[in-house]
C-alpha cells in the first residue's frame, strides 16, 4: 500500500461530507448509516474525529473470515459482498470496530479506499482527510496507535 487515508483531527469541522460521499460512492444513496467512515463529535472538547479502517497489517477481519470473503489487495482489505454470508465474526474480531454489519444488505462493510481514489478525501473541504503517501508523518502516528493495543503482538512477527 503506497498511499493511505491520513486524518488530521485538528482540521475537521464536523461537516460530515465524508460520510455522505462514502455512502453515495458505495450505495448510490446519501445515508450516513451506510458510510464506512464515521465522524465522532466530542463536543465538550470541541473536536471532531473522522474514524475508519487503517488497513492494519494484522488484518484480523481477513484472518478470521470463515469463507474467504475478505481479500488483501496490495494491503487494502476488501470485502467481496457476493462471498460474505453475513456471519459477522469479523465485526467482533476487529479490535478497532471498523468492520460493521449492514442490516440493509445482510453483509459486512468496511473501507476499501474506493479502489484507489477515496471519496471521503475528495469530499473533505478542509483537508482533514487526505489520501497521501504512507511516508507522511500522520500515517505513522495512526499506525502506532493501531499497534498500541495489547492485541497486536500475536499477528506481527
Amino acid at each position: 500500500m503506497d498511499k493511505a487515508l491520513v486524518i488530521d483531527v485538528g482540521k475537521c469541522t464536523g461537516c460530515r461530507q465524508c460520510e455522505l460521499a462514502c455512502s453515495y460512492e458505495h450505495t448510490g444513496t446519501f445515508n450516513p448509516a451506510r458510510s464506512r467512515i464515521t465522524v465522532f463529535d466530542f463536543h465538550e472538547k470541541a473536536r471532531f474525529v473522522p474514524y475508519t479502517c487503517t488497513q492494519c497489517d494484522q488484518a484480523w477481519c481477513q484472518q478470521v473470515c470463515p469463507v474467504g470473503a475478505i481479500s488483501n489487495e496490495n494491503g487494502v482489505k476488501v470485502v467481496d459482498a457476493a462471498t460474505c454470508v453475513g456471519c459477522k465474526v469479523c465485526t467482533i474480531a476487529c479490535p478497532f470496530g471498523t468492520v460493521n454489519y449492514e442490516p440493509a444488505s445482510g453483509k459486512v462493510i468496511k473501507c476499501d479506499l474506493c479502489g484507489g481514489d477515496p471519496a471521503c478525501a475528495r469530499a473533505c473541504p478542509t483537508e482533514a482527510i487526505v489520501f497521501a503517501d504512507v511516508a507522511v508523518q500522520g500515517f505513522e502516528k495512526m499506525r502506532a496507535w493501531a499497534e498500541k493495543t495489547d492485541t497486536a503482538p500475536q499477528a506481527s512477527a
Binding site: 464515521t38 459477522k88 467482533i92 478497532f96 470496530g97 471498523t98 468492520v99 460493521n100 454489519y101 442490516p103
Partner: peptide, 8 residues
C-alpha cells in the same frame, strides 16, 4: 450492530 469490535 455498530462498532462491536471496539469492545474487544
Amino acid at each position: 450492530v455498530s462498532m462491536a469490535g471496539c469492545l474487544r
